[in-house]
């Protein structure tokens, strides 16, 4: 019997592909009051809770969550990966707001024969290289990356 745990899987575009979304995010941040943004890397973060083995999670990431040709996935452990220094902003929908993407993943997992997950949620992660301070990054993010009415977010400094 495996204990139910929350697994976090981060999916990002391989570095050899042009990431238009990250580029436009960078220019939006610059226009929203964070002029010193050098680079933005955007990835998707899947939080899946349930009784899964590591094999399950690897297969799930490979076959469903990640497009292996252009994307890489990483199972997020407690240990932070060091690619810093950067600001990490995680944006997710409030629990009271419907998350259609998570809903679809849940259904797909059951159809693919995985055990039914207890909980699935999708978040966006932005890794921002910038000399700006936390309040400045926070204010800029609230202006262009999220809507406080439906989103929760956290800003952390990574080194």
């Amino acid at each position: 019997m495996i204990a139910a745990a929350t697994h976090k899987i981060e999916v990002s575009l391989k570095s050899e592909y042009g990431d238009a979304e990250s580029l436009s995010t960078a220019s939006l941040l610059k226009a929203s009051g964070a002029p010193s943004v050098v680079r933005v890397r955007r990835s998707r973060l899947y939080e899946i809770r349930g009784n899964f083995t590591v094999t399950h999670i690897n297969r799930l990431s490979r076959d469903l969550l990640c497009d292996q040709i252009i994307e890489d996935f990483r199972i997020v452990s407690q240990m932070p990966s060091s690619q810093g220094p950067f600001w990490k902003i995680e944006v997710r929908l409030k629990p009271t707001v419907l998350d259609p993407e998570a809903d679809t993943i849940k259904n797909a997992m059951i159809e693919m024969g995985f055990p039914a997950p207890d909980f699935v949620r999708v978040a966006s992660v932005y890794k921002i290289e910038s000399k700006c301070g936390k309040p400045q990054i926070e204010a800029a993010a609230a202006k262009c990356l999220l809507n406080p009415i439906i989103h929760l977010y956290s800003v952390t400094a990574c080194s």
Partner: peptide, 13 residues
Amino acid sequence: DHSTAVQIGHPLN
């Protein structure tokens, strides 16, 4: 803030 009036669409449904 009228957050209860906010809806998110679910096209697949």
